[in-house]
Design a protein around this nucleic acid. Structure first.
Lengths: 246, 246
DNA sequence: GCAAAAGTGTTCTTCGTACACCCATGA
DNA sequence: TCATGGGTGTACGAAGAACACTTTTGC
């Protein structure tokens, strides 16, 4: 391999191209981000987003998915490209531009993926200084996430199949960094028409409380669970201009 | 120069990197897009977006601005990166990824820029088949433009300093592809607080009609002109989360 | 003079917001 | 039993949508 040091030659200089992934996960209380610790220079030991060099026979998205699988064993359903970073000096080795993606994963997808490698989840407020310009990339990712939530019901990608209304509310609050009134939040979400009550709610309500006595900690007659209506949900996610108010 | 054919060598293969610009302009009736005719193969003679190869000492945005100046003599105030296209086969010559930008320019900025070169404005409904994957890039640019208009008062970048309310409405309608009620549109826009009446309105109203008799075709006492309040306008453009309704 | 564009206000309805009480759970 | 979290409904105000008439201009 080392004898191929100048194997690829071009008439004009070419920058190197990488991809990086900002992966978000919701732990029920706040947003978390996945970082990997660099094992080599530059920035050896520093934390960075998973990613790597683009190969010639793959698209950037394929590259991002491949690197993510290799480094964190994650395979998100949907990657969203949000920006390409091209500052001349952003990598000390050579000219490197990076195409950045973000993705949202359920907590249940994650278990087992993060123990083997040097990957770790960090709470949003607990993020160390990152390698390269990844601090900047991260800020841009957060902005992109907030923008996206205006157009698409992003949240459900981050929650389990069944969730409570307070769960959903906490998620929105932690992404947008604001507080909502419980009742108004629920009203707004419900009238989007993409939620339905979980069937398990009725059982609990009709039978004597606690009689079911399985998953839940004790026999609670309240504590409603919701799920999204897949068909409506997909419609909403696809429909780009479902919010027309210029 | 020709002896430097293999002057740039890398251990691993690098794709070439280009930028492309989708430039929009509003002619008072509908949106137009700026295209240049290719003078060389591949796709010689076909229309494409202005753009070119990234140099090693410039950021992608600088590259886009430089190519735009060279090919169309335009210098937009603000370029917005919206997507990077990386399909493996998108360029028949070699592996090329392109970082795409869009920009909005006033019609008055354009005059004189398009006659010397092979650049031309095309109405949105009148666009020929484009070189490379530029048809696809164009579709993505339109979507990005529509999204942007939800967050920022994009329109004024496309209008002259003074404009009538119907002008502004036509612009919004042509971007979003919908029709609005005149009165409701005006109400909504005005209460954003970024518009003020042109001083020239009062003159016309108080003096006998036609007495001024200069620019306008005849002495019209009506036909109000508006301008935006620069300070408020900039606030709005900067403020990312001015629309919080999840 | 006639058709088409543009200026102007009001009403109704919908949506957003503010707000209070009860029950269930866990300490 | 007490504090906390979570379930539920109402009343008010603001914003959006629907809508008609008059004046000006260009043909």
């Amino acid at each position: 391999m080392s004898e191929k040091e100048t194997a690829y030659s071009y008439k004009h200089p070419h920058p190197a191209v990488t991809t990086d992934c900002v992966i978000f996960c919701f732990d029920g209380k706040e947003l978390n981000v996945l970082l990997v610790q660099r094992g080599v220079e530059p920035f050896k030991g520093a934390w960075a987003f998973p990613g790597g060099f683009l190969k010639m026979d793959e698209s950037a998205e394929q590259c991002a998915l491949r690197e993510l699988k290799e480094e964190t064993d994650l395979t998100p359903e949907h990657l969203e490209q949000f920006h390409t970073f091209t500052e001349v000096d952003r990598d000390p080795r050579e000219r490197v531009i990076t195409i950045a993606y973000f993705a949202l994963v359920k907590k249940s997808e994650v278990i087992g993926g993060d123990d083997a490698s040097e990957a770790r989840w960090f709470k949003l407020n607990d993020i160390p200084r990152l390698a390269f310009d990844h601090d900047y990339i991260f800020r841009k990712a957060l902005i992109a996430l907030k923008e996206k939530i205006h157009f698409e019901p992003i949240g459900f990608d981050l929650l389990e199949e069944e969730f409570s209304m307070p769960d959903l509310q906490r998620l929105y609050e932690s992404i947008l960094g604001v507080k909502f009134d419980r009742r108004n939040f629920q009203k707004k979400i419900i009238q989007l028409g993409i939620l339905e009550e979980s069937p398990s709610n009725e059982k609990k309500a009709s039978s004597a409380q606690g009689s079911k006595g399985e998953g839940v900690k004790s026999g609670r007659s309240k504590n409603k669970k919701w799920r999204f209506i897949p068909q409506k949900y997909e419609e909403m996610k696809t429909l780009k201009n479902f919010r027309l108010e210029f």
